[in-house]
Write a protein that binds this DNA or RNA. Structure first.
Lengths: 244, 244
DNA sequence: TCGGCGGTGTGACTTTGGTTCCAGCGTCAG
DNA sequence: CTGACGCTGGAACCAAAGTCACACCGCCGA
């Protein structure tokens, strides 16, 4: 339909990218309904310049300090945004899930801000990358894009405010409870190793092991290798959500 | 010039508000240059609906859970955005300084998000409050407002990412060093009591006292009641900025 | 069958930071 | 002068969490 125009995709992303089988790089409209309402010209622009990439789990996409611009729309899987401390301990800042996006600098000509964190795929992941200039164009003339952008940013902002508060003022028990609840998404079991859990929460495996056993002893969870079952949902919520 | 239209200003803000002497509530254009380029209709809307309020230090403006919408543009002084943990300890998330703004929900009709933190004035402060509907209007039709909003939000986002990392992976020494450097803004001395310092960093006065003395013993700072002098700027930076 | 190896359990120890309690010191109003 | 109050110093103690070392179990491939 439209000739593919090659452009510099950012870094490692391209290296490991394998174009998915769909016609263009435009993400599913079911996940990003606001795209359906765009002007024809915008749709065309999107179709021409968006690239869908697809990668296995734990694919490294962005490093701290990378100068990136544009928007990463997640279609499948998830992106994990995390930091790495001086001692090499890492902690997850947030996930970008299907239907969400990671919007980076727009003013990509000057002040392409260096991204302050790392990004990797979490699970087999497909994302549509809209280059900075293109996104800026769309943002300038499409109210729907403006709104989407605003919500994405302010949503993350609120999330991060909560995270700061959580990490600063809650013990590990509560933080683990909170983490598990968020991850389970209503389900009763989370598939995760204690090692991974430790990395998400920026702590060590041993500490997670201890804490998890304490929670198990209290009857809140039960664990087996690679799995954590949420036994007492109610008490877990009470433990995690101190605002109650 | 334009008749003042009274509207419900949010909460406590109004209670203590005393209108400043300038003609309208529109903030200084020197601080917010993007406002100068707006269409005449927008300028009129701003002039009609913006309210300037002015308050002494430590005036409580927003509580967690308040349903607020709109933008707070800081003209003088500063706003301090902070959280309060279950045990009553507080920590500062960030400051909104002159020329900056605190942009809250825009979709103020539905989903007026509850604000997740507290806001108070820090120093004698003047702010211009643009109501939610008005800001939404401006945002919809003024590219400059869109851009300003985007930068404000993504700037905060990056700040908060750094804060999460800092609180999670740095010791108090480093966090205090970092805090003092940011506050000094190039100067060599910070006017702050240890009590206040403790509140900003979500710790206790005694701990700050100890840590500060340790830093003093190392020759990094020197302290007197209500003041902290930055003695060895270089080593302070090295201590705070572990990325070096 | 025999090692690896990934995932986990556990004890002992250290460090950091939070808590409690009290003492000193300067300023300022009465 | 004096007492109250705000700010700081400092000891003793405690709790949470990070660190180190090692042991165990199950699985899988050589």
């Amino acid at each position: 339909m439209v000739a593919a125009i090659h452009l510099k995709l950012s870094l490692a992303a391209q290296k490991r990218a394998s174009y998915a089988g769909d016609v263009m790089g435009v993400p599913d409209l079911s996940l990003f309904p606001f795209l359906a309402g765009l002007q024809p010209a915008s749709q065309l622009l999107l179709a021409e310049r968006t690239r869908r990439i697809s990668c296995p789990t734990s694919t490294h996409l962005v490093s701290r300090g990378d100068k990136v611009a544009g928007a990463y729309l997640v279609v499948r899987g998830a992106l994990r945004v995390y930091y790495v401390s001086a001692e090499g301990r890492e902690g997850t800042l947030y996930w970008v899930e299907p239907g969400q996006s990671c919007i980076l600098a727009l003013n990509c000509t000057f002040s392409r801000l260096a991204y302050p964190a790392w990004v990797e795929s979490d699970g087999k992941t497909e994302i549509s990358i809209i280059p900075g200039e293109v996104y800026r164009e769309l943002f300038a003339r499409e109210a729907a894009v403006q709104r989407f952008t605003f919500e994405a940013l302010s949503g993350r902002l609120f999330e991060l405010m909560a995270l700061v508060e959580e990490t600063a003022s809650q013990g590990l028990e509560a933080r683990i409870a909170s983490f598990l609840l968020r991850r389970a998404k209503g389900g009763a079991t989370v598939a995760i190793t204690q090692e991974q859990l430790a990395r998400h929460l920026a702590t060590s495996r041993e500490v997670v092991s201890r804490t998890l056993r304490r929670l198990a002893a209290l009857g809140l969870v039960s664990a087996e290798p690679g799995l954590v079952h949420l036994v007492d949902h109610v008490r877990l919520v009470r433990l995690a959500d101190w605002t109650a």
